[in-house]
Amino acid sequence: MRIPILKLNDCLLVSIQWELDDQTALQFQEDLLHKIHETSANGVVIDLTSIDFIDSFIAKVLGDVINMSKLMGAIVVITGIQPAVAITLIELGIGLDDVLTALDLEKGLEKLQQELGE
């Protein structure tokens, strides 16, 4: 199963709807970078509302894809991280320090516009 990536103006929208296994996560990394390249998108919103846990592997893949996107000129905003996920990430010791976050997709797009506008 591949994670669908939607295009909205100059942004890409990704909503992860099911539990990520390692392969899907890596595939997603690949797909997203290609899509950014293809569309010259300036921003990406990744929505994690449906994800109920993130371990260090998936956190690393996410962190990596954010940095890689940045290198390609696209800002990434992560949205919808659930309380339980936030707590486990912090306790694991993964702060995702420089990552932009927002409460939900709508706020995420707002934040992206803000960042891109400045």
Partner: peptide, 17 residues
């Protein structure tokens, strides 16, 4: 509860990996 479920799931994932 949901938070402990996430803690446990994550711990298992780490050990299994």
């Amino acid at each position: 509860g949901t938070v402990d479920q996430a803690r446990i799931t994550t711990a298992i994932s780490e050990l299994a990996r």
